[in-house]
Deep mutational scan, measured.
Amino acid sequence: NITAAIYDEIQQEMKRAKVSQALFAKVAANKSQGWLCELLRWKENPSPENRTLWENLCTIRRFLNLPQHERDVIY
């Protein structure tokens, strides 16, 4: 289940792992930094009809659900 909290989790994970938006986007969703920036802007007004947005957030959720040491190896 995806909630608005995922946006904060993304920010916290980037700080914790000391990774850039570009690197996080690449490893978590195989996307660009610009894409992640755009995604983070949706926090203010996520559209329930935007299926692509929710699919991408689900992809990021799966990455964030990995154990921390696995995420660190991927970075």
Rank of each mutant, 00 (worst) to 15 (best):
Q12A: 05
E13A: 00
E70I: 01
W35N: 10
N50G: 14
S20D: 02
L40R: 03
T52S: 13
K31C: 01
I6C: 08
L53T: 07
R62S: 15
N30C: 09
N1I: 15
N45D: 04
D8K: 08
V27N: 15
S20A: 07
G34T: 12
R62G: 07
R61L: 13
K15F: 12
F63G: 00
R61V: 14
A17D: 07
I10G: 00
C58R: 12
L23R: 14
F63Y: 04
E49R: 12
L40E: 06
W42S: 12
Q12N: 06
L64H: 02
E13G: 00
Y7M: 04
Y75M: 14
A29T: 03
T59H: 05
I6T: 05
R16W: 05
R16S: 14
Q33K: 12
H69V: 07
A25K: 00
L64W: 00
T52Y: 13
T3K: 14
A28W: 05
E49T: 15
R62F: 11
N50P: 03
C58A: 04
A29V: 04
N50Q: 09
I60M: 10
N56P: 13
K26P: 02
I74N: 11
L39W: 05
R41Y: 13
N30M: 05
T52L: 10
R61E: 14
Q21F: 14
R71I: 02
Q33N: 05
M14V: 03
S47W: 07
G34D: 09
I60S: 01
T59R: 14
K31W: 02
L36E: 01
L53P: 06
I74H: 02
N56S: 04
N56R: 11
W42I: 14
R16P: 00
L57P: 00
R51C: 10
E13R: 00
F24T: 01
V73T: 04
N50M: 10
A5G: 15
K15R: 08
I10K: 01
I6M: 05
W54H: 03
P48R: 11
P67Q: 05
I74K: 02
K26T: 14
A5K: 15
A28F: 03
L39R: 11
I10L: 11
L36G: 02
E70N: 06
R16K: 15
S47Q: 15
L40V: 09
G34Y: 03
R71P: 00
A4R: 14
P48G: 10
I74A: 12
R62A: 07
R51K: 13
L66P: 01
S20Y: 05
L66Q: 14
I60V: 09
A4E: 15
E49F: 07
L53G: 13
W54R: 14
N56L: 10
V73L: 13
T3A: 01
S20E: 08
Q21D: 02
P67S: 06
W42T: 04
P46L: 08
Q68W: 07
A22R: 08
K31S: 07
E9C: 07
W35F: 03
Q68M: 06
A4F: 11
P48Y: 15
I2D: 01
G34C: 05
N1H: 00
T52V: 08
Q33G: 11
L64M: 08
C37D: 13
V73R: 13
V73K: 11
A29W: 04
A22H: 02
K15L: 13
E13S: 00
Y7R: 08
N56I: 08
P48V: 14
K26E: 08
L23Q: 14
N50W: 07
E44V: 07
N45E: 12
L39V: 10
L23Y: 13
Y7H: 04
K26S: 09
L57G: 01
I10C: 05
A5V: 15
L40M: 11
C37F: 05
R51F: 09
A28L: 04
L40Y: 09
A4S: 15
E9F: 07
R62V: 07
K18S: 06
L64G: 00
W54I: 05
N45Q: 07
E70P: 01
P67M: 04
E55M: 03
A25S: 10
I2F: 01
I6W: 01
K18R: 09
E70D: 05
E38V: 07
A29F: 06
E55K: 01
E49N: 02
E44L: 04
K26M: 09
D8M: 14
W54A: 04
R41F: 13
S47R: 15
E49K: 04
T52N: 02
Q68R: 11
R61G: 09
N30Y: 08
E9P: 00
R51N: 03
S32D: 06
A5D: 15
P46S: 02
C58F: 10
R61D: 15
R41K: 13
V73I: 05
L40F: 08
Q68H: 12
S20W: 01
G34W: 14
A29P: 00
I2T: 07
V19H: 03
K18A: 11
P46R: 02
N30V: 07
F24A: 01
L36K: 01
L57H: 12
W42Y: 03
M14P: 01
R61C: 10
A5M: 12
